[in-house]
Amino acid sequence: MASLWEYANPVKFMKVSGFLLPLTAVLATASIGIGLVWGFFFTPDDFRQGSTVKIIFLHVPSAFLAINAWAMMLVTSLIWLIRRHHVSALAAKAAGPIGATMTLIALMTGAIWGQPMWGTWWVWDPRLTSFLILFLFYIGYIALWSAIEDPDTAADLTSVLCLVGSVFAVLSRYAAIFWNQGLHQGASLSVAPGERMDWAYKGPLYLCMTGFVLLFLALVLAGTRTEIRARRMQALTARERAQERGAG
């Protein structure tokens, strides 16, 4: 019986991902390209926010992925801790910098959107603050990966950090809400009744979201493949050294 765990074998993963990677990459480019052109040039301006609102097509997908990349790291870390599949740990490692970049994009597009709307690049609004803190969590996670030499030790320790970090990231979110009730508008796809987002916006937005998810997948696949190759190289040199020692 074929099981999902078969793909945790590096060789099998390399084969499957080698096929999936170009596919997701092409689909991601296409949907982001079409989504952005549609969103930027073929949608009406908002009656209050004017054309600045159109940054939503970058802002919302990146914010969505900033959180979900962490969620994916949490799941893959758990899989590593419980079933010890190397690919899972390496996928978490690959997702780290991508998630951090998404967070940064969300923060920067948010600042660009916020400037004309609120008259300032940055406010200490709970939603913004939470994302900034999330960015710090990403930095710590990436730093821990790069600080530890032994790959299995690094995988174990970063996984624990990811678990504990997830709990504290959620706590920080509530702490930030407690700390300051903000002026950021509600989540874009579930706005308050009476102020529903128009389909003219939803279409390109959904397309951009799909594109970003595909882009994320493609980047994680590419990153994981790189990590697997690096591990393979390590294993080969280690074996060579051991054999030399055996011969000598």
Binding site: L136, G140, L161, G165, F168, S172, Y174
Partner: peptide, 10 residues
């Protein structure tokens, strides 16, 4: 410090 300070936020 990098790991602990974000955890100190709440």
């Amino acid at each position: 410090s990098l790991l602990v300070l974000p955890l100190y936020v709440p």
